[in-house]
Design a protein around this nucleic acid. Structure first.
Length: 795
DNA sequence: ACTTCCCGCCAATCT
DNA sequence: AGATTGGCGGGAAGT
């Protein structure tokens, strides 16, 4: 088959982004329904739709908007402050192209595959399903095409999809030292959704330390750097709190029918103390994850989770509470699914099948490896135990969450983001980077900046430290055999790279042409994310076997292992199996070992406007001019895509890129953009037109051991980014490489299976988007206060 | 009919 | 006081 596109499918979403005005107009907006789209307002407001006069409007807009933004996002301001930057140019150029068309086309063509992947299981395999899928696709396509006509369809607005889009904006493994700022406002705007939805996503991401709150409207993106450590920590906490026991009991006991009492009773008491935060999605998310981590089967039914959570939350157990809890769990599950951490399955129980989720993430952590996986197995559980557990749990309950809460509070202070004592926050905000060039700085200034260089040199051996053998490479420049190093977004099938200088959060996507079926299949090149929903149905069966209730220890282990293996092999879950994952990555990023020669394509997507305006940079090694891509893979659309012949990408050199699609504008002559993709990450520069942009490279490896202040455990996981990666085939090189290893020396902990990649950019910073519209907040004004009080929690 | 979960009201919090 | 967060649950889309 031909090329598989990656994953950004989601990006496609119809909404528009912020930008400029010009671009967007009609389409999705068309849907009346969508209240969410903020853009709408904007659009209307914006007089100019026409793409033509790109520049001026652009600028103007930005400026204008800036002020508004100012109050909103402090951070941003700073960034924004800078007037114009090369980025702007870029944007302009890009935007110049007719956005609408571009977008659509892009979506249709490029993304479609992604979408498909996403939704369905890997393409090849799922022949059967394909039929279905296609339908779906077509369906979707149809919808998208005529924006006007169709409405978004509920699925398209799903939290999971939205989350994927969100995730696609940032690198899984950002360079440690260069924090990526996220402005919720901007993100919401760019994704075309109302803020409320972003909160949902961010809250769960925060629970996993994928993002950290800095201040109002400001978050820092940590990516998956700390994920493993966080999970480990959660696992530990889960055990401490006796969740494993509960899991077992829950089923039985509850079924027995008593869960209520405790709940009710405690609830009241607990309530008093508990505030809003205790019910927080964030906390719920952590608990939910804990359940998986301590579960033998790693499968948790919604029912069980809801019940357990209800208990804890001290809510009275009313049916309504249950329902509410379940709703929330779905929300959480959606984002976890997008992260590739869980997947939906059904468990069969005596009475029938129940919806459940299966953990796809890591379960065993090196450090703790110890007891880890066998949580509940041995102990016979007694009612007393449970009680004790509960008690302890409650007591501690707050603790866990608290930490978060506290953290937040601290952070919530209007503080200047950079300043905060890192120690308090867990966030690794390491401004004190030893590197000569502080990334932080770059980061902040992204737009203007020209180059960020990761100092490769920096990597101090000392720091780097311990790593698992596998992750030996921390080499910056050297082509690493590991695909991981590429800036791939592990979660997603595609690799993403962020080009910092680009105005908007730009994403570079790599997708390889999958020649080999096997690759796809095995590697699961498909994004896990993508597959989720669709596959649920299909795959579920497998999972079903899992009976939650009992697991024999030994067996279960095997089972688990088996399952995991399966999963990894079949779906290419990124994170779950280290190896598989790596492979997957490899496949993805390089043609994959399997597919040796295949060049991968680059997609450069400047999402300035929120993903609507997609700009792609595709590198097709095959196609000389880059123009000829496999038909299937690349549409001849007027879409603005930039093709970069892989051959063209020598390491360390700049190469000309061919941009197509831009022409659409007609006015724009610039078909060529020159990019310099740095072989070396550190030095990578992105050039657009004349202006060079610096790529933020993931830069070297970790320089400082623990950038993050956070708990030691957490800090361990950094992958450093190293710069250049190149495909084995040598087809191209790009950017970032990371060292896979965890930097922290001290704990030899887990190997980070994935280390990763590096590019990134701060979307937030970019702000461009933002600028465009403050718009969306209807709520503020609208906020209506009805007198209606709500009833106190019933009991 | 049941499952999933979007949407946005509105209260708690923060500025 | 106004803005930001985010709990919550109605009710509709999807199955």
């Amino acid at each position: 088959m031909e090329v598989e596109c990656l994953a950004l499918k989601d990006l496609t979403s119809p909404r528009k982004k912020s930008f400029p005005l010009e671009l967007e107009e009609e389409e999705d907006g068309g849907q009346s329904e969508q209240k969410e789209n903020i853009c709408t307002d904007r659009r209307r407001s914006t007089p100019l739709k026409s793409a033509e006069s790109p520049v001026p409007p652009f600028l103007i807009i930005r400026k204008g908007s800036t002020p508004d933004l100012a109050h909103i996002t402090p951070i941003k301001h700073t960034v924004l402050a800078e007037p114009w930057t090369p980025t702007a140019n870029l944007k302009m150029l890009i935007s110049a192209a007719s956005p609408d068309i571009r977008d659509r086309e892009m979506k249709k063509v490029l993304f479609r595959p992604i979408e498909n992947e996403k939704e369905k299981p890997a393409s090849p395999e799922a022949a059967v399903e394909d039929a279905e899928v296609e339908d779906t696709c077509q369906f979707e396509a149809a919808e998208e095409e005529d924006d006007a006509d169709k409405k978004p369809s509920r699925k398209q607005k799903s939290l999971g999809l939205l989350c994927q889009k969100f995730l696609a904006l940032y690198p899984d493994y950002p360079p440690q030292h260069t924090p990526i700022w996220i402005s919720l406002d901007e993100v919401a705007t760019s994704l075309g959704v109302e803020r409320r939805r972003i909160y949902d996503i961010v809250n769960v991401l925060e629970s996993l330390m994928i993002v950290g709150r800095i201040a109002k409207n400001s978050y820092t993106w940590y990516g998956r750097q700390q994920l493993e450590a966080t999970l480990e920590d959660l696992q530990r906490r889960g055990r401490q709190q006796g969740y494993h026991l509960q899991m077992e009991l829950s089923t039985e006991a509850r079924e027995a029918g008593q869960g209520c009492e405790d709940d009710g009773v405690e609830g009241d008491a607990g309530n008093a103390g508990a505030n809003r935060k205790d019910k927080s999605l964030r906390i719920m998310s952590q608990k939910f994850v804990m359940l998986f981590l301590v579960s033998k089967t790693q499968t948790v039914t919604l029912d069980t989770a809801a019940k357990i959570l209800i208990e804890e939350s001290q809510d009275s157990s009313s049916h309504s509470k249950y329902k509410t809890k379940v709703r929330r769990l779905y929300d959480i599950a959606n984002v976890l699914t997008s992260l590739g951490l869980i997947k939906k399955v059904h468990v069969r129980e005596e009475r029938g099948r129940k919806p459940a989720f299966k953990w796809l993430g890591p379960v065993e952590f090196q450090n703790s490896g110890n007891a880890v996986t066998q949580p509940g197995v041995t102990q016979p559980i007694t009612r007393e135990d449970i009680i004790n557990l509960k008690m302890s749990r409650h007591a501690s309950f707050n603790i866990a969450p608290t930490s978060v809460g506290v953290q937040r509070q601290v952070s919530s202070a209007p503080s200047t983001p950079r300043r905060e004592p890192t120690g308090l926050l867990n966030q690794p905000v390491d401004y004190s980077i030893k590197t000569s060039s502080s990334n932080a700085v770059h980061r902040l200034n992204f737009e203007n900046i020209t180059e960020i260089r990761p100092t490769a040199a920096q990597q101090t051996p000392a720091c780097s430290s311990t790593l698992p053998p596998s992750s030996t490479h921390r080499t910056l420049l050297a082509p690493s055999p590991h695909p991981e190093h590429l800036f791939t977004n592990s979660a997603s099938p595609h690799c993403l790279a962020y080009l910092p200088s680009l105005s908007q959060p730009s994403v570079v996507m790599l997708y390889r042409t999958p020649e080999q079926p096997e690759v796809q299949r095995s590697s699961g090149s498909e994004p896990e994310e993508g597959r989720k929903r669709r596959r649920e149905e299909g795959e579920e069966e497998e999972e079903e076997e899992v009976s939650k209730k009992k697991g024999t220890s030994g067996l279960e282990e095997c089972d688990k292992a088996r399952e995991r293996a399966e999963v990894s092999s079949r779906t290419s879950p990124d994170r779950p199996a280290g190896l598989s994952r790596e492979q997957a990555l490899n496949d993805i990023s390089y043609g994959s070992s399997n597919a040796p020669a295949q060049p991968s394509h680059y997609l450069y997507v400047p999402n300035n406007a929120g993903l609507n305006g997609f700009n792609f940079l595709l590198s097709a090694s095959q196609s000389p001019a880059g123009l000829t891509l496999p038909p299937s893979s690349v549409p001849t659309l007027p879409i603005p895509y930039i093709l970069v012949p892989s051959s063209a990408l020598p390491h360390h050199h700049h190469y000309p890129l061919v941009a197509s699609g831009l022409q659409q504008q007609g006015s724009d002559p610039h078909n060529k953009l020159s990019f310099s993709l740095p072989a070396v990450m550190s030095n990578a520069h992105f050039m657009v037109g004349t202006a060079p942009f610096g790529l933020a490279a993931a830069s070297d490896v970790g320089r400082s051991p623990a950038p993050s202040p956070s708990t030691p455990e957490q800090s361990r996981m950094y992958g450093s980014a190293a710069g250049a990666s190149r495909s084995p085939s040598g087809s191209w090189q790009t950017v970032s490489v990371n060292t896979p290893e965890p930097l922290t020396p001290h704990t030899p902990k887990e190997t980070t299976p994935s280390a990763s990649k590096a590019f990134f950019q701060t979307p937030g910073t970019l702000g461009s988007v933002v600028s465009a519209v403050p718009a969306a907040r209807k709520r503020g004004s609208a906020q209506r206060r009805l007198d209606v009080g709500h009833p106190p929690p019933t009991c």
